[in-house]
Simulated scan of single mutants.
Amino acid sequence: MTKIFAHRGFSANYPENTMIAFVEAEKAKADGIEIDIQMTKDGEIVIIHDEKVDRTTNGSGFVQQLSYKELRALNAGHRFKYSNKESIPTLSELFEWMQGNSIICNIEMKNNKISYEGMEEKTINLIRQYGFEKRIIFSSFNHYSLVHSYRIAPEIETAPLLSDGIYQPWIYANAINAKGFHPNYKRLNGEIIRASESNNIKVRAYTVNNSKTMRALMKEGISAIITDEPIIAREILTQL
């Protein structure tokens, strides 16, 4: 059965990567959430997609140049109609909430542009602290970081992000000890899905918002889709 991961939470209807987007994703019956992490100037692991705060908040500047306190003062919900202030959450804040549910969390490490010294270690320590080793999937476009994470914590699943199509991705995933890979859905076909899944390599495609595409991928037996629209995805899965 295909799993539904809410991309940055229920980001079609709520501010991306905020606690309300995660809470609403769970209400929408998503099996998991996909989040992005960066690190503040004072070493706090925070949930935000871009290296800069400009697009998603009312502030400006690089995450790595702002302290956690400065970041916390920003409003990550200002582009949405409702007036609630939404803070940029910390990873610990998310984990506190996850203690009350069984949601899976796909953590994308955003360290392909800025290396964030020690981010993997900090994140892994936190996961172990909460006992979430089996509820986390690490993904990244920085495959060196994934290999590094696997070496420190082989018990946590890793899955490389792939923007381009690569030849026999299941063989590549296996070579770096990953249990899956997360491709751009446009670079995917039924043959790749079937070959990967039959070799015990999970395929979780991003970012699938078109209902026709969702249906086609689900019919091919894809492990998961990562979508901004968890409600639509759940309706289609139920029909199938």
Score class of each variant (00 low, 15 high):
Ile171Asn: 03
Ser211His: 00
Gly165Arg: 04
Gly77Tyr: 13
Thr207Leu: 00
Phe141Val: 11
Ser102Arg: 12
Ile48Val: 13
Asn111Leu: 10
His7Phe: 09
Ser60Asn: 14
Asn13Asp: 15
Ser60Ile: 06
Ala216His: 01
Arg72Pro: 04
Pro15Ser: 14
Pro169His: 02
Ala175Pro: 01
Lys113Val: 11
Phe22Glu: 05
Ser102Ala: 12
Lys81Ala: 10
Ser196Asp: 02
Asp50Pro: 12
Tyr185Arg: 08
Ser115Gly: 11
Lys27Trp: 10
Thr207Glu: 00
Glu26Asn: 14
Phe141Asp: 11
Glu93Thr: 10
Ile201Tyr: 03
Leu66Arg: 12
Gly100Ile: 12
Pro89Lys: 00
Asn125Gly: 10
Arg55Asp: 15
Ile222Arg: 03
Gln129Asp: 07
Ala6Asp: 05
Tyr14Val: 09
Ser115Thr: 11
Gln65Glu: 15
Gly9Pro: 11
Ile201Leu: 05
Ala6Lys: 07
Arg135Gln: 13
Tyr116Ala: 07
Ile35Asn: 04
Lys202Glu: 04
Pro154Ser: 02
Ala205Asp: 02
Phe132Gln: 06
Arg215Tyr: 02
Ile103Ala: 11
Gly9Met: 05
Ala216Gly: 00
Asp50Val: 09
Ala153Asp: 14
Glu86Pro: 00
Thr90Glu: 04
Pro15Arg: 10
Ile37Val: 14
Ile104Val: 12
Ala159His: 12
Asn209Gly: 04
Thr18Phe: 09
Val46Asp: 08
Ile232Gly: 00
Ala76Lys: 02
Lys219Tyr: 01
Ile201Asn: 01
Ile166Tyr: 01
Leu188Phe: 08
Asn184Ser: 09
Leu240Phe: 02
Ile171Gln: 05
Ala205Trp: 07
Thr227Asn: 06
Phe22Asp: 00
Asn106Gln: 13
Val147Pro: 11
Ala28Gln: 04
Tyr150Leu: 10
Ala233Gly: 09
Arg55Asn: 15
Glu121Tyr: 03
Leu237Ile: 08
Phe181Thr: 05
Ser60Lys: 15
Thr2Ile: 06
Asp36Tyr: 01
